[in-house]
Design a protein around this nucleic acid. Structure first.
Lengths: 147, 147
DNA sequence: GTATATGCAAAGGGTTTGCACGGTT
DNA sequence: AACCGTGCAAACCCTTTGCATATAC
């Protein structure tokens, strides 16, 4: 149901505010968004909202399980709504391209980590870095684009 | 051979400077070090060295393949000498602990990424996040320590 | 001698925090 | 009415950059 988010917040002792609704909506609409991008989206509706509110709100929404974040490159993290299907980002350190693949590709790996080390992997939290198919085939020099 | 690093630099058109030697040495001695930590180490020997030089030097040393860096948490990256054996960091988002495991654990996974997506994975570049065995077993609440 | 490296200080991106006011409960 | 949430501005960490001086070649 759609008003589930109010429940979620109230259950955890948080109040319902326009800002929290707008931020959640922006995250859902954008599907992928940095705090800055979310701010811009929110400001389409409410110009007065401040960046620090975005940060504080995302923290709250994440703590009650309504959004998550992942690190793609060096810069700001991106936030998604939790109902998005889980995916892994493959980041090319050479050309900077980002490819999303199903998290299921890592199932055997994460099972291994659980069995061997007891580690419960959140595979989508950080990206996998390397070189994409295009870059891996053509250029001979292993130059870093940096991250 | 020990003076290989001079070769490496010269081959690539870089000059040999005390700072470059000291930074390389510090990275080797520390085994894991952030730019700030490397600065401190270097300053044991040469007090006048500046942080910006550390950054610029690490960039140079990395470009010629003498050092690499990995991202462990949210903060500064850590640098290693390239002769260190390759490892993956398992970072617990709950207690913050970091465990190093052999990169070979991911071999099947990275082969898969190569075969399916043509992606050449640099598995050690970013850490794997999740919850360590201790945290995964005890507490029921999925609280984020944040990264 | 000439180009590259360095030190210094200032600026930059991303994020957090202290405080007083305003809104939710 | 009490407390939580917000806006604003300042501070913060990490990193990069411009510029003049110093140094490796």
């Amino acid at each position: 149901m759609a008003e589930d988010w109010e429940q979620r917040l109230r259950e955890n002792g948080f109040r319902i505010t326009p800002q929290r609704q707008l931020v959640l909506q922006a995250v859902e609409d954008l599907r992928h968004g940095t705090p800055e991008e979310i701010l811009v989206e929110v400001q389409h509706t409410a110009t007065g909202v401040n960046l620090s509110t975005i940060y504080r709100t995302l923290e709250v929404l994440e703590s009650v399980g309504l959004v998550t974040h992942a690190h793609i490159g060096h810069g700001a993290p991106t936030y998604h709504a939790v109902d998005e299907h889980v995916h892994i980002h493959l980041v090319c350190d050479q050309c900077g391209s980002v490819e999303s693949i199903p998290a299921a590709v890592a199932d055997a790996f994460t099972s291994d980590l659980r069995d061997t080390y007891g580690f419960e992997t959140d595979i989508s939290h950080v990206s996998i870095h390397g070189r994409c198919s295009r870059c891996a085939s053509s250029p001979p020099r292993p130059v870093d684009v940096e991250d």
